[in-house]
């Protein structure tokens, strides 16, 4: 008998059966299953999909942050891209955080490769990963006192004095 392939619907059903209320929302943009998980359960969900015998979603492709400044109470998102190498199935998990409490559990204990990705997300968005072994800036200079990818900051270097708007059509 041919091996049962994983489908978006099947995986979502398994997740809902296992976690119930923690699965907040789900959609399939461009046929990629995207599941919003409540922030405090994210660590548990990632561990479960990795160790579950039926899913084996055991590879962390990417981890990053997003800033939605107009979305009150859900200003920041942490996005996890996971991949099952055995079943050739991809899953995207999202957790939203309010500006006042930017804390989420680190997944370095599940994927060691998440170490630098979480540092980068901290570096650019200021999201705190709890239990991270070494949460400090990775790409920007240590003396930087803000999180540059937040949308309230200008992309241009603020320390320049030689720029005259007239020359730039502004």
């Amino acid at each position: 008998m041919a091996k049962q392939e994983l489908t978006n619907e099947g995986v979502l059903e398994q997740l809902k059966a296992q976690f119930g209320e923690a699965i907040v929302d789900a959609s399939t943009p461009y046929d990629l299953l995207t599941v919003e998980v409540s922030t405090d359960k994210m660590h548990e969900v990632i561990l479960w999909v990795k160790e579950s015998a039926s899913l084996k979603i055991d590879f962390l492709t990417n981890l990053g942050g997003v800033h939605y400044p107009d979305d009150k109470g859900r200003e920041f998102a942490v996005v996890y891209h996971l991949h099952s190498l055995v079943n050739n199935f991809r899953l995207r998990l999202k957790a939203f955080l309010p500006l006042e409490n930017l804390e989420i559990n680190s997944i370095v204990d599940i994927y060691v490769g998440a170490n630098w990705m979480e540092r980068e997300t901290y570096d650019f968005f200021g999201i705190i990963f709890k239990n991270h072994p070494n949460l400090r800036r990775i790409l920007n200079e240590d003396s930087m006192d803000y999180f540059p990818m937040r949308k309230e900051y200008h992309l241009e270097d603020a320390t320049r004095e030689d720029k005259d708007d007239r020359y730039f059509g502004r």
């Binding site: 900051y153 241009e156 320049r160």
Partner: peptide
Amino acid sequence: TGGIFDTYSVLQ
């Protein structure tokens, strides 16, 4: 001068 990289991370 920093060239096209008029950004927070590049020395101007």
